[in-house]
Simulated assay, not measured.
Amino acid sequence: MIDISLIGIGTGNPDHLTAEAVKAMNAANLILLPRKGDAKSDLIDLRRDICAAMLSPSVHVVEFDLPVRASGTPDYLNAVAAWHDAIAHIWAEQIRRHLPTGGRLALLIWGDPSLYDSSLRIVERLSSIGMTTKVRVVPGITSIQALTAAHALSLNQLGAPITITTGRLLRTHGWPDHADTLVVMLDEGCAFEAIPPDGIHIWWGAYLGMAQQVLVEGPLSKVGQTIKAVRADSRARHGWIMDIYILRRR
């Protein structure tokens, strides 16, 4: 039996960790940290810093190389499913190596494990490769919360719905029907350019909660190109970018 804790650690700021998250980390026998080769976007140093600051010496921390997801394929969902399968097999290999008789495993998840994160789906795959698991989710601060807090913005309008979507879907399908407020996540690059900007307000943020946090807000028709330039400059300087934005019809 492997007890797995998926621990939300917020958006990169160690102050985002809850007391529950710190307790769960220190209750683990093993913490796995993923590496993405030499790419700065994996933020492995932040995970290392969190472990160094929060863990007791008895917790074993192991790093592993995250497999690369196939890109450029038209079959996006199958490519992601194959990627998840590969990650599950790596987790199983590390568990067998470091917890051969069972124990408590923890994984540190950016934001919250239940919002645009695949760790729960990957854990489900472990049963198909011979592992018995019990899963616990420790909620964390999401990038949505960090963005609304940074802009001092209420996410919802009175009696109005909220739609959470991805940059890929916004670019492919445009503004969703019956939506007033959109939260756009996982945008590889300014998908808001695919919609008519008139009457749309945007609240954009990158590196939320970190020292390099940057924010832009205003009518999309006026600040869209500013966001595009700031995003490109920030990515060039830091080598990676994580951003999110809210669009609202005025």
Rank of each mutant, 00 (worst) to 15 (best):
Y76V: 13
Y76S: 06
V80D: 10
A81D: 15
A81V: 08
A81C: 02
A82V: 02
A82C: 02
W83P: 01
W83Y: 15
H84Q: 15
H84F: 12
H84A: 06
D85Y: 05
I87H: 00
I87P: 04
A88H: 04
A88D: 07
A88F: 09
H89I: 00
I90F: 02
W91V: 01
A92R: 11
E93K: 14
Q94F: 04
R97G: 03
H98T: 00
L99Y: 09
L99T: 06
P100K: 10
P100T: 00
P100G: 11
T101I: 11
G102I: 09
G103E: 00
R104E: 14
R104F: 09
R104Y: 10
A106P: 03
A106Y: 05
L108R: 12
I109S: 11
G111C: 05
G111A: 04
G111W: 07
D112H: 09
Y116Q: 11
Y116N: 12
Y116C: 11
S118L: 05
S118V: 05
S119V: 04
L120R: 15
L120E: 08
L120C: 10
R121W: 12
V123K: 03
E124P: 01
E124G: 04
R125P: 05
L126A: 11
L126E: 07
S127V: 12
S127N: 11
S128R: 13
I129W: 09
G130F: 07
G130D: 08
M131N: 05
M131V: 02
T132K: 11
T133F: 03
T133Q: 04
K134C: 13
